[in-house]
Amino acid sequence: MTPDAEVRIAGRALARAGLVHAYGHCSARLGTGVIVVSPAAPLGLVAPDDVCPMVPLDGPLPATVLGEVRMHRAVYRSRADVGAICRIQPPAVMALSVLGRSPRAVHGFSSYFAGGVPMFDSPVLVRDDAAAEAVAELLGGAAAIVLRGNGALVVAPDLRTAVCLAWYLEDTARTELAVLPAGSDVCLLTADEAERRATWEGGLAERMWAYLTAGDREL
Rank of each mutant, 00 (worst) to 15 (best):
M208P: 04
F120W: 15
S184I: 00
R101F: 11
V36G: 10
D158H: 13
V98A: 05
L165Y: 12
G203F: 01
V126M: 08
I145T: 11
D216Q: 05
N150Q: 13
L14A: 11
R70D: 06
A178I: 00
G141L: 02
E193F: 01
G151H: 04
L96Q: 14
W167D: 15
Y76T: 06
P123F: 05
S78W: 00
R174P: 02
L189G: 09
A142C: 12
Y112T: 12
L66W: 09
L45T: 12
G149C: 02
G100H: 07
M208I: 13
A130K: 11
A95H: 04
T64P: 02
H107E: 15
M71K: 11
R77V: 00
R77G: 06
S111Q: 09
A142T: 03
V146H: 11
V20I: 10
Y23R: 05
R174G: 08
E137T: 14
A15P: 04
A15D: 15
G215T: 02
L188K: 07
V154M: 03
A182T: 08
G108S: 07
A162W: 10
A178K: 00
A80N: 12
V154W: 03
I9H: 12
D58L: 01
L43N: 13
E68F: 04
A63P: 06
R207S: 14
A63T: 10
A105N: 11
C26R: 04
R148Q: 14
D158G: 12
